[in-house]
Write a protein that binds this DNA or RNA. Structure first.
Length: 482
RNA sequence: CGGAGCGUGGCGCAGCCUGGUAGCGCACCUGUUUUGGGAACAGGGGGUCGGAGGUUCGAAUCCUCUCGCUCCGACCA
């Protein structure tokens, strides 16, 4: 191939953000579309990110007293019917299983064996977990009960986008039950804090913790809390939510128990989740025009070593030298590897760049002679190129990764701050979006009662994102969202 | 579900208007020289044009129906 474009990804973010997003996923080899409508294939490099998220977050849940379990993929239709609001929210997007057999017909296989009662492929599991809880909880002594499952759900979305909205997606869904409403609320806030910690300290996401407006609440919830993040195109992304379900589901599912006062009582339940959508958020927050920029603590590959050799079979000792480094780095728990593929070095470099590997190390004869390495930080690019002794690199590696994380988080926070503007009136909102500015507008919650707000929101395809805790419920963020 | 666009080797496209059984770039394979920010030359393999039906001596090209995908919108993790 001849001249390459200035950036590894075409188009650039500025030129066409949506298309750029797709191209980053493709270039990093994270996922691709599948033969199934709205469902994607998560490729090994993409799935490794999800596995790392699980490996990080799951121990935190266990520490908090949550136990993992697994509930059926299929939910009896009648379960969904139990909760009116819940149905309103999900009925339109349910895949339904109506048969249990295939027979050979004139035009191929046809469904046979019609089910008495259809099953719904779970869009979320409140009802079936609630049903189990109704049997498992008999006494206040059985509370609190904290359950979680890592699994997949299906929502027949009209329009899908890889990672951000697919018909089938992976997530974890937690379902807790408590004796009192205070405990349930406390649970929601505690888990929201865990989410914030996870997103900030591991994915380098900035965001706002806050309460959802009634329109944006989970169907059936008394209150929904969210960690709301902002993407480089100014749109908000709900990265994680916790729902205070009050007694809605305990009443419809029959989660009752004998209380301390010997009376029959209904439990207070919560549910909470984040999904593979977080990967989409990582791309849109951190990615640049050369592709993915992976947050170091979640990166499947943190350090890649590129041996710069003339001939892969005559490396002059570079591989041994590099392998010793890898061994040392691995002792520190770092994910380091040598790219030994039979490819040209420049192609390996671009591959590492597009995959967003935080630290790229080059070792050629120049380095070998002096026991040195040359490294480049993905977040800063070429200007960060440095040559230091191999020993020093091994010593500094963890610190460098931490610095990369800090830089990425700081960038994200700066972006959030620069793209959140304060307003006081409806026209502040209108003017902002009329001027094609990107970001969120923070306005007094009193505006929510203004009759004309709806028209303004509709005109610019806006929604209320959340009422940030930091504003003590006095302000609401309004903007576009994924 | 409304609007727009598109389905031709793995990917991106041209060909279609003015029918004559397929072409380009990248990727891939072989060889030589290369390899520190996307290599060069030479040779080579691979598609029947989303699907069905129709018109025609003949269809990727024309007609009808259908399926699917992408983007914008409404809905939503």
């Amino acid at each position: 191939m001849g001249k390459q474009p200035r950036t590894a990804i075409t188009p650039t973010r500025e030129d066409n953000f949506a298309e750029w997003y797709q191209q980053v996923i493709k270039a990093a080899d994270m996922a691709e579309n599948s033969p199934v409508r709205g469902c994607m294939i998560i490729k090994p490099y993409g799935f490794a990110i999800w596995e790392n998220m699980q490996n990080t977050f799951d121990p935190w849940l266990k520490e908090y007293g949550v136990q993992n379990a697994s509930f059926p993929l299929l939910i009896p239709l009648s379960f969904l019917e139990k909760e009116a609001e819940h149905i309103d929210g999900f009925a339109k997007e349910c895949a339904v299983v109506t048969h249990h057999r295939l027979e050979v017909g004139e035009n191929g296989l046809v469904p046979a064996g019609k089910l008495e009662e259809p099953y719904v492929v779970r869009p979320t599991s409140e009802t079936i977990i609630g049903d189990a809880m109704s049997r498992w909880i008999q006494s206040y002594r059985d509370l609190p009960m904290k359950l979680n499952q890592w699994g997949n759900v299906m929502r027949w979305e009209m329009r899908t986008r890889m990672f951000l909205r697919t018909s089938e997606f992976f997530w974890h869904e937690g379902h807790n039950a408590f004796e009192t409403p205070e405990e349930a609320k406390e649970d929601c806030l505690t888990i929201l804090d865990m989410y914030e910690k996870f997103f900030k300290e591991h994915l380098a996401f900035s965001g706002y913790k806050g309460v959802k407006t009634p329109e944006e609440r989970f169907p059936g919830a008394k209150e929904t809390y969210a960690f709301e993040s902002i993407m480089q195109d100014g749109k908000a992304l709900q990265a994680a939510t916790t729902h205070d379900l009050g007694q809605t589901f305990s009443r419809s599912c029959g989660i009752n128990f004998q209380g301390r006062s010997e009376k029959e009582e209904f439990a207070y339940t919560t549910s909470w989740a984040f999904s593979t959508r977080a990967i989409g958020g990582m791309i849109m927050i951190h990615g640049d025009d050369d592709g993915m920029v992976m947050p170091p603590r979640i990166a499947p590959q943190q350090i890649v070593i590129l041996p710069v050799v003339k001939n892969i079979d005559e490396d002059g000792g570079i591989f041994d030298f590099a392998q010793k480094m890898v061994d040392e780095l691995k002792k520190q728990g770092l994910h380091a590897h040598i790219d030994k593929r039979d490819m040209r070095t420049p192609d390996k470099m671009w591959d590492a760049i597009k995959k967003g590997i935080p630290l790229r190390v080059e070792i050629g004869n120049r380095e070998l002679e002096n026991k040195e390495v040359t490294f480049v930080r993905r977040d800063l690019g070429r200007p960060s190129k440095e040559t230091i002794s191999a020993d020093a690199f091994v010593e500094r590696a963890q610190g460098l990764l931490d610095q990369i994380h800090d830089t990425m988080l700081e960038r994200s926070e700066t972006f959030r701050d620069e793209h959140t503007v304060n307003g006081t009136t409806l026209s502040d909102i209108d003017d902002f979006f009329k001027a094609d500015r990107i970001g969120l507008v923070r306005v007094p919650v009193a505006l929510l009662n203004d009759d004309k707000l709806e028209a303004v929101m509709k005109a610019h395809a806006l929604s209320t994102r959340c009422m940030p805790f930091e504003d003590e419920g006095q302000k609401v963020l309004i903007g576009k969202a994924y």
